[in-house]
Amino acid sequence: MKRITHLIITALIIISTVCVNTLTVNAAEVKKPRTYDMVIGVNQSGKITDNERVYYKVSVPSYTTFVIDYDEVNIVDSHWYSDLSIINEEDYNNSIIGKDVTKVFSGNAKQSGSYEWYDGKVSLYSGTYYFIIRSQCSDSEYNISLTPTVNSISNFKATSSNNIVKLNWVKDLGSDGYQIQMNVGNEYIDLTDTKSNNYTISNLEPCKIYNIRVRGYKNFNGTLYYGIWNEQSVFIKPNAPVIKKISTNKKHQIKIKWSTSKKCSGYQIQYSKNKYFNSIVLNKTLSSKNTSYTKTKLSKNKKYYVRIRAYKNINGQKVYGNWSATKSIKCK
Results as ranks from 00 to 15, higher is better:
Lys99Arg: 14
Ile189Thr: 10
Gly174Cys: 14
Glu141Pro: 06
Tyr81Met: 08
Thr147Trp: 06
Ser85Arg: 12
Asp91Val: 03
Met182Cys: 11
Thr64Asp: 01
Glu116Asn: 02
Asp77Ala: 11
Val73Gln: 04
Ser152Leu: 05
Tyr63Gly: 08
Tyr81Cys: 05
Gly120Arg: 04
Thr147Val: 08
Ile87Met: 06
Gly127Ala: 04
Asn183Pro: 08
Phe105Met: 13
Ser160Asp: 09
Ile132Ser: 09
Ala109Ser: 13
Ile75Pro: 03
Ile153His: 02
Asn93Lys: 15
Asn168Gln: 13
Ser140Gln: 01
Tyr142His: 03
Ser114Phe: 15
Lys157Gln: 11
Met182Tyr: 03
Val73Asp: 01
Asn93Leu: 11
Ile75Arg: 00
Gln136Phe: 15
Asn163Ile: 10
Asp91Met: 07
Ser145Arg: 06
Trp80Val: 05
Lys121Trp: 01
Asn155Ser: 07
Asp91His: 10
Asn94Asp: 15
Tyr92Arg: 07
Lys103Asp: 07
Asp172Phe: 06
Ser152Ile: 06
Ile97Met: 08
Thr65Lys: 13
Gly177Trp: 02
Ile96His: 14
Glu116Asp: 04
Asp77Ile: 10
Thr149Asp: 00
Ser95Phe: 00
Gln179Ser: 14
Asn155Gln: 03
Phe105Lys: 06
Tyr188Ser: 08
Pro148Val: 01
Glu116Lys: 01
Ser161Ile: 10
Asn74Val: 00
Thr65Val: 05
Asp83Trp: 04
Lys166Trp: 08
Cys137Arg: 14
Ser114Ala: 12
Ser123Cys: 00
Ser145Gln: 08
Leu146Ser: 03
Asp119Phe: 05
Gly120Asp: 02
Gly113Phe: 02
Asp77Asn: 12
Ser161Ala: 08
Phe105Gln: 06
Tyr142Ile: 01
Lys110Ser: 09
Asn143Pro: 11
Asp172Glu: 15
Tyr115Ile: 03
Val165Gln: 04
Gly174Met: 07
Trp169Val: 13
Asn168Leu: 08
Ser78Gln: 12
Thr149Met: 05
Gln136Glu: 10
Lys157Leu: 11
Asn93His: 09
Lys103Cys: 09
Lys157Phe: 01
Ser112Phe: 10
Thr147Phe: 04
Ser85Lys: 14
Ile87Leu: 05
Asn155Phe: 06
Gln179Ile: 14
Glu141Thr: 13
